[in-house]
Design a protein around this nucleic acid. Structure first.
Lengths: 130, 130, 130, 130
DNA sequence: GTGGTCTAGACCACC
DNA sequence: GTGGTCTAGACCACG
């Protein structure tokens, strides 16, 4: 269900958060669907339950899932999830734009880039290609 | 020359890297200009020389500066620096675009966002997450 | 009669307690009226009878209902119930006030807030933290 | 500096959060003052460093402190802290008011209670007095 | 030295 | 069985 990348420098719990968010956003996990239990997922990924626990807690804090003691963790309301993700994306785009302006990029250039990337995923996983 | 923000969550050496990159990109430090020595800058900012050392090493690794043993560190070729920065920005935009597509955003929507952000810096400070 | 919210973070038995208290306080269940049996309510809500049992036990401990072995559970004396609820509310307000004073709020400010909230239920759903 | 109550049913990390918030709000810890290090406070309270770590992380998330790897944790901007606390208090008062209305309390009654409590801290630590 | 992440294993409340 | 809290002890990144 999830594949961890131990070469990734980000903490494991963040990777779990991201993967779960993806599964929810792309519809693999539907609204109110039950997530794998903390212990199950932990043994599946052969990592410590505490790490999963932390990821789930963060996902709940951000509004993507809800957890109930004794019952399990479940996918939150689909509508609000899309809104959440959308606002997250907008926020990160804003910070990118700020930096782009400082770097002297023109708006036209950026629009062109967007258009290019949108049709062609040129460099699949993107290591530096300078 | 450089002002550190101790409330910034990012490590000091990263802040130094960014500020130096900015100074180079906006032309304050011209091609082949000498950077302040590790010791000088360290005492100026009253931080540990190791931290500056690390920042300079990273800037060199990324191609923004070059160091000559016994003489100091200098700003790299202006043209290649702009190319560098440009490629960095493009790469981060690419990863953003990939995520945007997965999240179901439309290309039109993104162009609109870019246009909006380009004219109005609505929200003074956001997170740098791209 | 009762509707559970499985997205609510509070344990089920607490929700049952609260709903029952509400039904009693607003008069739907009158003094000495018989409550649904543990088993009946459990099957109605399709939850574990133990959970209902616990809720009823707690309600009895707090004085809202009384149970007679072999006969069932009944609503306690109306007058004392209102007094109970009133005292509960006063107690939680007292702890809030203590905290407000420590936080440096003025009495005037608080009166204003109360007046505002009393007329306008601005924000549909908040957290219950008092 | 802090005293834990092991009879309290709330988790330890929440108690630490509350106590720290109090120390900050009442001015014992001033803006940008350094908090005791995670390890120090842990040994002081003879609890596990992870528990303190969690408390500090939460305090940072809520905007009361900021932490920097390798340097320590520090009290955040005083102004924004007061605003934070104020909005927290208002939110909890709102939920109380909602419940009070459901319970049939009158606004006058509540104002009277507030006035009473404000001058006289009748029941110091408030166990049930029915 | 600092904060932050992770593991292993325990206990609790809830269902 | 579930989620949630806590401990003990380890390792890493940073200064």
């Amino acid at each position: 269900m999830i594949l961890l990348d131990y070469k990734d420098r980000r903490p494991i719990y963040e990777q779990v958060i991201e993967k779960m968010k993806d599964l929810i956003l792309c519809g693999v996990l539907e609204q109110d669907a039950q997530l794998p239990s903390v212990r199950t997922l932990a043994t599946d990924l052969s990592i410590n339950p505490n790490t999963i626990q932390r990821a789930y807690a963060e996902l709940e804090r951000r509004g993507f899932i809800y957890s109930v003691k004794g019952r399990g963790s479940f996918v939150a309301d689909a509508g609000s999830i899309r809104a959440l993700k959308c606002s997250e994306m907008k926020r990160s785009l804003r910070s990118w734009t700020r930096e782009a302006k400082r770097a002297g990029l023109t708006e036209d250039k950026v629009h062109t880039w967007i258009a290019e990337e949108w049709i062609s995923p040129e460099n699949p996983e993107g290591e530096d290609r300078i």
